[in-house]
Write a protein that binds this DNA or RNA. Sequence first.
DNA 1: ATGAAAGCGCTAACAG
DNA 2: CTGTTAGCGCTTTCAT
Lengths: 347, 347
Amino acid sequence: MSGPTPDSSRDARPTLEAVAARAGVSRATASRVVNGGAGVRQPLVEQVRKAVEELGYIPNHAARTLVTRRNGAVAVIIDEPEFRIFSDPFFSRQIRGISRELNAHDAQLVLLLVEGSGDFDRVTRYLAGGHVDGVLAFSLHTDDELPAVISRFRVPTVYGGRPGSSGDASEHAVPYVDCDNRGGAREAVRHLVSLGRQRIGHIAGPRDQTSSLDRIDGYRDVLPEADPSLVVDGDFTVEGGARAMAHLLEHHPDLDAVFAANDLMASGALRVLGRHGRRVPEDVALVGFDDMAQVADVTDPPLTTIRQDVEGMGRLMVQLLMQRLNGDGTEPDSVITPTRLIRRASA
Amino acid sequence: MSGPTPDSSRDARPTLEAVAARAGVSRATASRVVNGGAGVRQPLVEQVRKAVEELGYIPNHAARTLVTRRNGAVAVIIDEPEFRIFSDPFFSRQIRGISRELNAHDAQLVLLLVEGSGDFDRVTRYLAGGHVDGVLAFSLHTDDELPAVISRFRVPTVYGGRPGSSGDASEHAVPYVDCDNRGGAREAVRHLVSLGRQRIGHIAGPRDQTSSLDRIDGYRDVLPEADPSLVVDGDFTVEGGARAMAHLLEHHPDLDAVFAANDLMASGALRVLGRHGRRVPEDVALVGFDDMAQVADVTDPPLTTIRQDVEGMGRLMVQLLMQRLNGDGTEPDSVITPTRLIRRASA
DNA sequence: ATGAAAGCGCTAACAG
DNA sequence: CTGTTAGCGCTTTCAT
């Protein structure tokens, strides 16, 4: 395969060589111009630019990667059981933020969806293959094995959400971006207290996620003396929230407020409250978490909730990674983003 | 936990050369074995395999791409305004299906999120750069310019959802995967009719999406004589559904059934129906579309709806693309997947 | 069946 | 400042 095939115009991508020839310079100079043009005299720069333009030259990424060992791509690894990614806009929004910021850095987003340890081999091979410059990982479960897998390859990584214990504190601390779960929870509960509520329950998220644990801590920060049975576990779903609410109502009929660890559970709780004849917020005040679109703003009544800037967190993750990639090689610090109470009608 | 990590496998990734040397064969033979081992004598195959194992050899993708002109990656392009990707689990599920099937084919998923024509340049450059072997595109708007952009590069493509007119019928027909929107809508309305309902309204989706149009057509197939004002436009959101329902109730107080073009709008309609003192399904029967988790199954009452196999559609898209990539080069046919009525309590 | 050798398209010393 | 010269790691004729 040496001669150019005349009839397949798609195969005819011009190379740097062609650009150089057309501009009357060497390949090296053409390369310099394509990569910013530093240290090349202006007239030459323009000749090359013109040639690039006329030929419609586009650099061959593979060739460039081969020599620079940089691939201009970042892997986003999401290790999450189906039920959440199916129903939670959380990832969609975070990915939107990541995508935007990655675009700004001219980097590609390679999506790696992991569904249990069966996929670790694949991810391992991929990471070991050095196909990406860095990794953005969502490891929301404290017992997740993924951090261990990732850390084995020393590929620059930033976590979304505070990793659980398996992150092995002895290792180099991997930076993460998370919202102020604990502070947000405090704000939610304090709001309820400021409303004069006396018996405040908490519908918690799964205990294997740091965000759940942090929100419980926030609740306890404000109500250290509260009856432990006022905290009931949910699973971040509407149904789970409904079940937890029913349980709470059964054991604490005198309840006058609830802080649910997310909006989905709050909406489930809302329905149960209605069925039991409790008016919201008159009888029971309710605060959620996330300010999830199409949920918090459309329930009846709309939810008072704690907003976290999910998209901004996504962008931040990319910024930290780029800082690590292009900076002096030191690990950047983790970032905790602020939350904000959004007052609607439920509390 | 344990001592210092054996940092032997640093930056020095073994090359094919190293494998060949260790196995006592030429690079060419080593390459053959790594790529399936066809035409190499068994003993040699084993020697090479052993060397690969011992060295932990992983092929350098860039080098391979450079010569084969294959990159083992597929781009997923989503051109969607924020409000939907933020609130609709649809894409999450479809991507899950795509991811699974891509994994099975050992291909990577490069995610390209497009937000308006400002991003076309970037996508254009990327596609023109030949960075991916194929494209899976979601172009849900009939006025979308993306198909035009994509078709310019003749990169093998499969669409998710039937493209609108801008697909230029004169061009080579690009295959797509879509569910039977029209048939599903017919099924929904027929169900309502079989329940003895006489005045059946339809809350439609945005007119710039073929799925909305097809569902309207399905409604009309069953009720060709229905008053046109029984069809009210929504926007696929909860709020939009609520508004449309209020409108419908105002103009057709005698309504006894509604078919909403998706579950989100159905849930909005449900709330408005409740506020107006209409019991569901006694006074007004309601059918949705999608069978969206955490929506259709958790409303009160739970929604009777039309289920579409979103994940399966994602897998199918990949299969069609692979067929095009590895097959005889002919465009595969589009696929329409069946829908199914899921009976719950709302109708 | 195997090996030698020629690149794929690009960047990065190193000269000039 | 610019051109020359080596490769980056791999696949693939083409001989043997």
